[in-house]
Simulated scan of single mutants.
Amino acid sequence: MQSLPKTLAEDVAKNLVMVARLIDEDPEGAYGYSKVALRLASRVAAVREAAGFAAYANQKYGEALAEFRAARRMTGSVDLWPVMADCERGLGRPEKALDMAGAPEVHKLDKAGQVEMRLVAAGARRDMGQMDAAIVTLQSPELASNSVQPWTARLRYAYADALLAAGREREAREWFAKAVEADRDGSTDASDRLAELDGVEFVDALSEDTEDAEDGTDTAGESADAAPEDGDKD
């Protein structure tokens, strides 16, 4: 944004900060701020990229793809290739996503980008009902490695989920457990999926207490009407 006047650059930056801050918790809010940034500086690659992610978070895949393409034209970077392919999936074009997974651009991605592309390709296979192919797509040195990287939990989770969809429950449980081991920041619900496979049910104690109160029952299980009458007192 160095090409922008100082005041304008500050205004754009404030909107981009809000996009980043809200995109997970309030995607619609983030989308609104991205539109303001676009109106102020549509020729800035960072703005087009942020607008793409905001649209993507709101499942506006056509709009997101257009913004990502614009950002890529401005920078020449291939970093957005996997999310662009996932937009094709969102638009109901898994075949196009698979074509992108086999394109030369993939070889220019860093390791994280290549893993992300593998996840997108496996998702495209599942979209097409090719469960076995999805499983094979995810099988890789990164999946087999014992080292925990930023992508490890999501890769193991996707593999477990594909196995479960293919009816291979025992193997799925094993890989959900491995995903839990790698998921240090809770980025997946692998622990819930593992518990579900193990038949574990979680009970909300607070909810039960509320229901008991509504039924006129105290926490000791006695009715509120069970207090002794005055005539029963000593």
Rank of each mutant, 00 (worst) to 15 (best):
Q2F: 12
L4A: 04
L4T: 10
P5A: 06
T7I: 11
N15Q: 12
L16S: 06
V17G: 12
A20T: 15
R21Y: 13
I23Y: 04
I23E: 07
P27M: 04
G29I: 10
S34Y: 04
L38C: 07
S42H: 11
A45Y: 10
G52R: 07
Y56I: 02
A57V: 08
N58D: 11
K60S: 08
Y61I: 09
Y61E: 08
E63L: 06
A64M: 01
E67K: 10
R73F: 14
G76W: 07
G76Q: 07
W81P: 02
W81C: 03
W81T: 11
P82I: 00
V83P: 04
M84Y: 00
M84L: 05
G90T: 04
G90E: 02
R93Q: 02
P94N: 02
K96Q: 05
K96E: 06
A97H: 00
A103T: 08
A103Y: 05
E105W: 00
D110G: 06
Q114K: 07
V115S: 03
M117I: 00
R118L: 01
A124L: 01
A124G: 00
R126Y: 03
D127L: 00
D127A: 00
M131Y: 07
D132Q: 15
A134R: 01
V136S: 06
P141K: 00
L143S: 05
N146V: 09
S147Q: 09
V148S: 06
P150C: 01
W151N: 02
T152Q: 08
R154F: 02
L155S: 07
A158R: 04
Y159L: 03
A160D: 11
D161L: 11
A165M: 10
R168P: 07
E169C: 13
E174R: 11
E174G: 10
E181I: 12
R184W: 12
R184L: 12
D185Q: 14
G186M: 09
A190G: 12
A190L: 12
S191A: 15
D192A: 15
A195R: 15
L197W: 09
D198P: 09
G199A: 08
E201L: 15
V203R: 15
V203G: 12
D204C: 13
S207K: 15
E208K: 15
D209G: 13
T210D: 13
D212G: 11
D212C: 12
G216H: 08
T219Q: 14
T219F: 13
T219P: 10
D225S: 10
D225K: 07
A226V: 11
A227V: 14
P228M: 08
E229P: 09
G231E: 11
G231I: 05
G231S: 11
K233N: 06
